[in-house]
Simulated assay, not measured.
Amino acid sequence: MDVVIPAPDKIKVTSHRQYHTPDPLSPAAVAPSPLDQFRLWFTEAQGAVLEPEAMSLSTVTANGVPSSRFVLFKELDGRGFVFYTNYESRKSKELSENPRAALAFYWREVHRQVRVVGRVEKVSKAQSEEYFKTRPLGSRLGAWASEQSAVVGEGEVKERLDKVKERFGIQDEERDKADIPLPDFWGGWRVVPEWVTQTSSYEDVSNIDDAHSEIEFWSGQPSRLHDRVRYLRAEGSSDDAPQWKIDRISP
């Protein structure tokens, strides 16, 4: 990458590295289900990519104001992609107002990307509790101590953390055996690829309304002529047994 600073208030990127992914990516070469294809790619990324579970999460307010941030992907089940957070955070409030989300994974080391668009739903409390128990003690205490996205003063988070430790009787020597319950305000969200409505067009994505969902796999190639394969959910297919239309789309 070459960077030029033509003026104090400007930055220009004039070139970038070339991509090349040797494995072919085409509708004929991918799995019939995008969830199966994601499992394959994610498994391969684990051996080559630092923190492959990092993903961009984009949400939109009821008034149409977008927001993006990176969170950690935690589970893929038969319905969709699961992550965990504070239910009173900005992202959760936006998901409650407008239950649609977009995810993006970028695996630089293997020149691959995955995009996901779908509706969201909360996972069950039992599933959240099961995951919460696997978190390190510090992370479980932090979930109780942080009023995520709220304005705080200097030292306030530490003070809250000290009070949480006192509340649950945490001593340093007891760190490995402490039982910290799941907060009522904390849990998982699942992004579920939905179907395309009858008013939508498979061929022209600009005509697809806000019910549109998709999963796209991107494989870097030279001269920006990247391979892109998109799965669109067939209308009327169930969350538990979805059917997919698979297309190659232009780079």
Rank of each mutant, 00 (worst) to 15 (best):
D2K: 13
V3E: 04
V4S: 07
P6T: 02
A7F: 02
P8T: 06
D9K: 06
I11F: 10
I11G: 07
S15Q: 07
T21L: 04
P24A: 01
P24Q: 02
L25Y: 02
S26L: 01
A28D: 04
A28T: 06
A29V: 03
V30P: 03
P32W: 15
P32C: 04
R39K: 15
W41N: 01
W41A: 00
T43G: 08
A45K: 11
A48R: 13
V49P: 02
M55S: 00
M55Q: 03
S58Y: 01
T61P: 01
N63W: 01
G64F: 03
P66K: 11
P66V: 00
S68G: 12
F70T: 15
V71A: 07
V71T: 11
F73Q: 09
L76Q: 07
R79G: 00
R79E: 11
F83C: 03
F83K: 04
Y84S: 04
S89L: 14
E94R: 14
E94F: 15
L95M: 15
S96F: 15
E97C: 12
N98S: 14
P99L: 14
R112D: 01
V114W: 04
V114Y: 04
R115P: 00
R115M: 08
V117A: 14
G118N: 05
R119F: 04
E121P: 00
K125D: 09
K125Y: 02
Q127V: 08
S128K: 08
E129K: 11
E130A: 13
E130T: 11
F132G: 03
K133C: 05
G138K: 09
G142K: 09
Q148H: 09
S149Y: 10
S149G: 03
G155H: 04
D162G: 02
K163H: 02
F168S: 10
F168Y: 11
F168E: 06
I170G: 00
R175V: 10
K177F: 03
K177G: 08
A178Q: 10
A178K: 07
A178W: 01
L182K: 05
P183H: 02
D184M: 00
F185N: 12
R190N: 05
R190G: 02
V191H: 02
V192I: 14
E194A: 12
T199H: 09
S201Y: 10
Y202S: 12
E203G: 08
I208L: 13
I208G: 10
D210I: 06
H212F: 14
Q221P: 01
S223F: 08
R228M: 04
V229Y: 03
R233I: 03
R233Y: 06
E235Q: 15
Q243N: 10
W244I: 06
D247Y: 08
